[in-house]
């Protein structure tokens, strides 16, 4: 094992994946590669479920998938554990750190003391790496931060055993061994990642997931103002913007990440066609940004007419079409 190097990322799970795999010896891995190989791009609005009393929307695949899939692609053997007993969970973390192993942890952000208060909601799918301990403080590499930080033992216990939806239950994970990484394996990983992402964006039955799911949300947006009243409808739009990334910047960040992945994939595989699809995904990212600006007009109270809601919905319909086209094109490229 090499010494742990902090890796800042746009998204926590990508960052943990890259941080842990680089340490295990996978030098080639970058955030966009992890995101693409893990088939990270997605869209879903889960019907009937409400999160923080707003629509349950996600712009990426389910928590844990990116890490699991990327590890599988490179024959990385993993140890993962969840606990009932808090005492045991803390003891085993300490024991691993003693052995010099850096450990990925799923945590809730509500008690994450180094976070600014404004971000501390009951959100339980955040990921970070613990890479050491000094007395009562754990050394923490939180991928969304520029620098490493520390967390007290007491706080660590609280965040590992946060409660509510997706409760982490002390979940830890770390690679134990890694297969030989060849160029062929890298190409195969990219191929698998792309195929799976095409499936997720194009061929999930029902109308709520993939490119089609964006139209489902658009359809709902048109009804919100009459159904929920102006205040609540505006809050729902705010939620969509907040969900575009947990903390990340500029709406549609996941689309840009995927665009960057396709660009790297084109360089590795030599398939120039991937660059054309990358352009399209970048365009979708720009359109998500535009939609967020339009939605902000509503939740800031500057706009409130039904026509403004329709405008948001129209942009979403266009995004759906662009993403569908991009993935249909991607699906046809032989890698």
């Amino acid at each position: 094992m090499q010494e742990f190097k902090h890796y800042q990322a746009a998204h926590c799970e990508n960052g943990v994946t890259v941080g842990l795999l680089k340490q295990a010896g996978l030098e080639q891995i970058t955030e966009p590669l992890a995101f693409g190989i893990g088939s990270g791009l997605f869209y879903i609005e889960i019907p009937f479920l409400k999160l923080q009393s707003g629509p349950a929307i996600s712009f990426r695949t389910f928590p844990g998938n990116i890490f699991k899939r990327t590890c599988k692609a490179f024959d990385v053997k993993l140890e993962t554990k969840k606990y009932r007993d808090e005492e045991k969970a803390m003891y085993e973390l300490d024991a691993l750190l003693e052995q010099g192993i850096s450990v990925g942890c799923q945590v809730g952000v509500f008690h994450l003391s180094y976070y600014p208060k404004q971000y501390r909601f009951h959100f339980n799918a955040h990921n970070l790496i613990v890479f050491g301990r000094e007395g009562n403080d754990y050394l923490v590499s939180d991928p969304i931060m520029e620098e490493t930080t520390t967390l007290s033992r007491q706080a660590m216990r609280k965040v590992r055993f946060a409660k509510g939806v997706l409760a982490p239950k002390g979940h830890i994970y770390y690679p134990t061994s890694i297969g030989e990484v060849t160029d062929d394996k890298l190409v195969a990983a990219i191929r698998t990642g792309i195929k799976r992402n095409c499936r997720d964006m194009l061929r999930i039955p029902g109308g709520v997931a993939g490119a089609k799911g964006i139209n489902y949300t658009a359809k709902n947006i048109r009804k919100w103002r009459d159904k929920l009243g102006e205040r609540k409808a505006a809050l729902y739009l705010g939620q969509i913007v907040r969900m575009q990334e947990e903390i990340g910047t500029g709406g549609g960040g996941f689309r840009y990440l995927y665009g960057a992945f396709l660009e790297e994939a084109a360089a590795i595989t030599g398939k120039e066609e991937l660059l054309i699809v990358s352009e399209k995904i970048t365009k979708a990212g720009d359109m998500w940004r535009d939609s967020a600006v339009q939605m902000a007009g509503i939740y800031k109270g500057r706009l409130s007419a039904q026509a403004d809601y329709n405008h948001c919905a129209d942009i979403l319909n266009q995004i759906s079409a662009v993403e569908k086209e991009a993935f249909l094109q991607l699906d046809k490229i032989k890698i």
């Binding site: 910047t249 500029g250 967020a292």
Partner: peptide, 24 residues
């Protein structure tokens, strides 16, 4: 600051840092 991916002058993706976005 947060990482984001954006196009440089040659139209290639690069990492950059953002202090935040008013819309968010």
């Amino acid at each position: 600051r947060e990482v984001c991916y954006a196009k440089n002058e040659d139209g290639k993706y690069e990492r950059g840092l953002s202090a935040g976005w008013s819309v968010k």
